[in-house]
Amino acid sequence: MGHQLIKMKLQKIKIASVIIGVLVPICLVYISTNQFNNQAPKCSIKTITVDELLKSFIRNETIATQQYLNKVIQVRGKISSIGLLKDNQVEIALKGTRYKSILCTLNPEQLFGIINSIEINSEVLIEGKCIGFLNDVYLKKCTVFKSVKQNC
């Protein structure tokens, strides 16, 4: 009798482990992809195109720095490259002129699942903190939104 009870308990544990083992990864993937696809860009944040942002820095770097440094902005443009920096940060470049672009390092929280969800040449809206201009404009802690349209 006791032996049968132990057997039944063991079976229940086995079934529970299988359910947890299957469900947990499915839930994680669902949460991560859903977060990327459904998160909406904030309407209160200034939105600008790649061209407009680059032009303002090229026209007058001092004024543009005062205007954008440390500000969270949304930039609309086409992805020209996706690369991995040596410190494992993912850097996305938005296409600008031949030598100038917008370089965005991604928010680590958004990394999971993102690489498979975006493509070169796709139109995106990127939200990030502007940290300055060298030859390119740099944004950090970026979040990528696939849909360029905002419901504001």
Binding site: D87, Q89, I131, G132, L134, Y138, K140
Partner: peptide, 9 residues
């Protein structure tokens, strides 16, 4: 060469 101070991790 040039760099942004805020890019230091």
């Amino acid at each position: 060469i040039s760099l942004l101070i805020k890019s230091f991790k």
